[in-house]
Design a protein around this nucleic acid. Structure first.
Lengths: 221, 221
DNA sequence: TGATTAATGTACGAACTGGTTCGTTAGTGA
DNA sequence: TCACTAACGAACCAGTTCGTACATTAATCA
């Protein structure tokens, strides 16, 4: 997330379209993640910016488009992280485990992103559907998974004929749920899934689960 | 969900506190699930009821308490379903698989509940925390899992020393994500996780995953 | 340097929204 | 049957919220 940093200017108001735009996006990201789409207040976003509400409409057109822009930028961050994935030098088992761990880490590091995705799901992904940029981003991680699975299958390490998208769903679901549902889960079961001292435990558990699934003897039961 | 059914009364307005209350809850459940807390409109809820907004405040006090009441009733439904769980006559492996499948089915059958839980997580579970009823419901399913795990461990079928809450989280995360994130996942990866013709596939996949994890030889890698 | 325009700020308004006030009526028990 | 109360409805209100009209100024370039 390219957060806007202070250029340490000398007091006086100056003009910087890119900076203003980026600052609005930064603040809007936090506000939409905090309160959801309907709960987010345009006035509140403007107030936390060095500029005014007028600029939000000037640059983005409206609340709806602002949210779409926030989503686009948020997704571009993972896409970028996925492009830097470097696990294919590992053997298939280690590669999948590493991939799962990186997914785990990314989810933990970006709770705002997870809240935005939850919000977008409440809206049935209508903003993604309406965005050209988002409709076609695909997922670099998916290609990586595909190749690792093929290698694992070939070397006989992976018994199952698992689909890459399915495996991605499996890994994501655990990582996502752990963050998105931590509050209700914590309140109902008295366990903080994101507690620091549980981090390694759940990270390992995810890897164990995925590897167990991929290497299991499916004929046993 | 005890939905209010028409008592087929003969035209004239009559009084029925229980019915009015229940009808408000029914409509509110749908509205909060549809639009989230902030997005839900008290006027809209009232309009879809045979009564007026006045009654919402008469019976529940306000929007916030109405949402809490909606949550309480929604959670009571799963609690009840969990109490009817009957899997312990099966061997541990079959019992866990069956439990996972029932969880899977329940999530699929109650998308509104899943949306409500997502909404409550956006609010950091503050309504659950504030509700005496919800703060202490616990989970009958958890006790069932505990006993199955103990049996499986004893008979040597389950290699791992897995915690019941963790296993519940693992099962729930997949079931929950599949429904809660189906829209963004579908938009981004072109796969509908809740498509009818994929149902058995994912149901089996969940069972395979959980059993593989529980029966895996953790010393291999 | 002066004209042009991109960028910005102020003030305002129309519609909405949660909540309330006030009055009414159906059932119930003495 | 009559007084009492739980249940109910219509209208209203005050604060909020998205969006805009209008005025202004900093950069840019001929």
């Amino acid at each position: 997330m390219t957060t806007v940093e202070e250029p340490a200017r000398s007091g006086g108001r100056q003009r910087d379209a890119a900076r203003t735009r980026a600052e609005i996006l930064d603040v809007a990201t936090k506000e939409f993640a905090r309160a959801g789409y309907a709960g987010a207040r345009v006035d509140e976003i403007a107030a936390r910016t060095r500029t005014t509400k007028r600029m939000i409409y000037y640059y983005f057109g409206g609340k709806e488009q602002l949210f779409t822009a926030v989503l686009e930028r948020a997704y571009s961050v993972i896409r970028q992280a996925e492009q830097e994935l470097d696990v294919e030098h590992l053997d298939p088992v280690a590669a999948i485990r590493r991939l799962a761990e990186l997914t785990f880490d990314h989810h933990e590091a970006h709770p705002d992103f997870i809240r935005l995705v939850s919000v977008e799901n409440m809206h049935e992904a209508e903003h993604i559907a309406a965005s050209e940029e988002l409709a076609e981003i695909g997922s670099p991680a998916l290609e990586v998974i595909r190749r690792i699975l093929a290698a694992g299958r070939e070397s006989g390490l992976f018994t199952a004929d698992v689909d890459a998208v399915d495996l991605h769903a499996m890994i994501s679901s655990f990582c996502f749920f752990r963050v998105s549902n931590r509050h209700t889960f914590g309140a109902l079961f008295g366990r903080d899934l994101v507690a620091a001292d549980q981090r390694e435990h759940y990270r390992t558990m995810l890897g164990d689960m995925v590897i167990a699934y991929l290497t299991a003897d499916r004929t046993r039961d």
